[in-house]
């Protein structure tokens, strides 16, 4: 399944590492859009084209958690998975991201492609399920596919 992922991290090398790990994990065929901080991410965030977001926490201008809160507040983004990819690993931080900000998954740096597979498989399945009815209805699907779309 083709997916568009927004990768937000102030480190260009780390964005490359995230993208490489996702490709090696073979969860989907990704097209990547890169952003250098939360504010840049918000400017590039289009719920109609972005299927999933990978967000660092500590960044200049706007943190990853602020990005998730603001993206969620638009209302249009409630079903787009937000994955924190961060070096913050204290329990309180993880709870803040998942329970308060509205992130869907939390991956601690450093990570491996296997970590990505384990933590993201269910989310990717959800994205696929969300995208499939739309794809079917676009190709002239019947009553049920129209219902889902």
């Amino acid at each position: 399944m083709d997916m568009t992922a927004l990768v937000i991290d102030d480190s260009r090398v780390m964005r490359n590492m995230v993208m490489q790990a996702l490709q090696k994990a073979r969860l989907a065929t990704f097209t990547f859009i890169e952003a250098a901080d939360g504010a840049d991410g918000l400017a590039k965030f289009d719920p109609k084209t972005i299927d999933i977001c990978f967000v660092d926490w500590n960044m200049p201008n706007m943190t990853g958690v602020e990005f998730v809160k603001k993206a969620r507040a638009t209302g249009a983004a409630f079903e787009i998975p937000m994955v924190m990819v961060t070096s913050e690993r204290a329990v309180g931080k993880i709870e803040e991201a998942l329970n308060t900000a509205g992130a869907d998954a939390y991956i601690c740096k450093p990570f491996t492609p296997e970590d990505m597979q384990v933590k993201l498989q269910k989310l990717i399945n959800k994205v696929e399920a969300r995208k499939q009815p739309a794809a079917q209805s676009g190709s002239g699907g019947g009553f049920f596919s129209n219902l889902f779309s």
């Binding site: 480190s11 260009r12 780390m14 070096s87 690993r89 204290a90 329990v91």
Partner: peptide
Amino acid sequence: ADMGDIVGEMANVMAGDIVARLD
């Protein structure tokens, strides 16, 4: 420039672990 980037990330990842250990 990438060397500066990656060393910053290495310090950042270690700092996250240090914070968790102290927490």
